[in-house]
Design a protein around this nucleic acid. Structure first.
Lengths: 335, 335
DNA sequence: TTTGCTTATGCAAACGATTTCGGAAAAACA
DNA sequence: TGTTTTTCCGAAATCGTTTGCATAAGCAAA
């Protein structure tokens, strides 16, 4: 079965393809009767304009490119859900790629989607991304770009984020309120904005409570479980045992959690622990872990709304603007 | 900044566009020197063939359409992750839509992707889908289609599923091994394939253990929490108290769980309970619930592998074949 | 009758790549 | 020298739609 084309309709009605095109697009200088004939036949033949042919002329599509580190992570899949929902209601579809935290793959994906002429991008960058040339190429071509959660900060693009510093400060303050005093922080890659902001929040909370900021209690690493495990391991080996830990994210917290268990220490009695992102696993473990919940679905919705507005209003987006969401602390038994 | 085209290269080298095309595609009847010149200039100008122009000629794309009920659900997002991974390594991108369990939206999405000329479809149907005309349209156009998890059974298409009967049998056998003898089953809509299969597994397990199959212990209902609640309520009112329950899915199990709690009965001492699907909530409740975990990521990978093979080998797919995965029992404290 | 204007439509180019057909030039052969 | 074969390349059509320009018909005013 072939798809009906505009020329099929033209032939049947013995008129030209251009007239059919104009009739279907309601051009004013087409006779009403012709228009009706065309539209009726189009409906009868189940005509649907070929979006590929259209795209070739217009050099754009009704597709939004979405690039995230990993689709299956709660936070991202929920955000994608929100993006799709908004996109659907505006007549867009979404092309979804995952970088698997690899810079190279992020670049490849970005280029692939760019060459597929997606109308705009919604991106959360990989952990290993420190160079933003592939995103700059989008801005150069005036392709709308919205970051969410993990933004590439050196570029003038809009980002949808939570207030990492504020939420982190709240999480650490919670620890302080529960009576913990020697609070360690397991940070992420120092180049990453979320690492910086969460570290900042940690320090702010300590300052507000007049607690000392001790460098030996601040550990840098990656964003994986193994990094949290390693940081905790180092503390134990150095015999620097904090009474609480605030981790840059949930995997790191889980890694520390494991090492704490292995050391025979009790959570939360010996050491309390707070993660970040409210990953599923944090509630599965025993004891369930206190963490910060990000409004992922809503952030996805918002990112899509902004992007679509940029696409449709052809707004240039050379402003470094942040849409900031509130994140809520989920208190569980680990504190 | 404009994208380089094949004619840009042709003009610079004072040759024809056709020669450039052939050089880039390594046609044998192009002079080696010409080929090299073309390739070098292409690289220098950062040339990338326009996939839209290609698609217009070939009437196909390197895009796979994925339609699921809800992206953010654990099972589906994990499956999508698996699909994307395989797709990426084969040079495909994925267009993801969610039906939100709405038949209408599933139809709209299917048509939209079909008209966008996706190379193939991977679909898990919505709960409300009873008519398969939109999928039949794909088969008519020889567009490859693979179902996963929830298949539309009346069509000759490949499906990637788990062995519901076998997994159910294993779950019930687990109950028997733990010493439970009066095991009830809360089934789903009798018309649904998963209901039939899971009921079958329940019966098989009882037979193997030489336990009687009692109709009063088999309750039919929907797939929602309220249905599980109602079934449990009925049992209590009839004073038929089982010592264990195997529910058709997690929501039904959760409903029963609530009613059991309200009745002041203890889980697992008075009544044990097993769900199906390993929904997030099953591990959050107290006590955490034993359930059946489906290998979502692997099922996604497999579905993508099959689909891509169909696409590339242009295999017709008029066979109703099932790829069956093993589902694993996740034992928690509710049993 | 000529000129000018409106209305409705067609022609052809364009988007960028691929592909069929064929031809010129060079090489090989008689 | 003449004929055939090979090598290399170009012209043009094609995919389906949009759009600038041309034009025919009809009618009114001069």
């Amino acid at each position: 079965m072939r798809n009906t084309t505009i020329t099929d309709i033209a032939k049947k009605l013995k008129i030209s393809a251009s007239t059919v095109s104009r009739a279907l697009n309601d051009y004013p200088d087409i006779n009403e009767e012709t228009k009706n004939q065309v539209k009726m036949l189009a409906k009868k033949l189940n005509y649907w304009p070929n979006p590929i042919a259209r795209s070739l002329k217009s050099n754009r599509t009704n597709v939004i490119g979405v690039i995230v580190p990993e689709i299956k992570h709660d936070f991202f899949s929920s955000a994608i859900s929100g993006i799709e929902e908004v996109a659907y209601h505006s007549g867009y579809t979404i092309l979804v790629c995952q970088s698997n935290e690899s810079y190279d793959r992020e670049v490849i994906n970005t280029n692939a989607l760019m060459h597929q002429r997606v109308a705009g991008f919604i991106v959360s960058i990989s952990q290993s991304t420190t160079n933003g040339d592939h995103f700059k190429a989008l801005l150069d071509r005036k392709i709308p770009l919205v970051f969410f959660d993990r933004a590439f900060d050196q570029l003038p693009a809009i980002k949808v984020v939570i207030d990492d510093a504020k939420s982190s400060c709240r999480a650490v303050t919670h620890l302080i309120e529960r009576g913990y005093k020697k609070i360690a922080h397991f940070s992420g890659p120092i180049a990453m904005e979320i690492s910086k902001q969460r570290l900042k929040g940690y320090k702010n909370a300590l300052k507000k409570a007049n607690l000392p900021i001790l460098n030996e209690l601040i550990r840098y690493g990656g964003l994986q479980e193994s990094d949290g495990y390693a940081s905790m391991d180092a503390l134990i080996k150095e015999n620097v045992i904090p009474d609480a830990i605030f981790a840059v994210n949930d995997p790191v917290a889980i890694g520390a959690f494991q090492r704490i268990n292995e050391a025979g220490l009790k959570i939360p009695d010996d050491i309390a622990i707070v993660g970040f992102s409210n990953n599923k696993i944090t509630s599965l473990i025993e004891p369930p872990m206190t963490t910060v919940n990000q409004p992922s679905y809503e952030m996805g919705e918002k990112a899509a709304e902004i992007l679509i507005e940029m696409i449709e209003k052809k707004k240039t987006h050379n402003e470094n603007k942040a849409i900031v969401f509130e994140a809520e602390l989920v208190v569980r038994k680990s504190t």
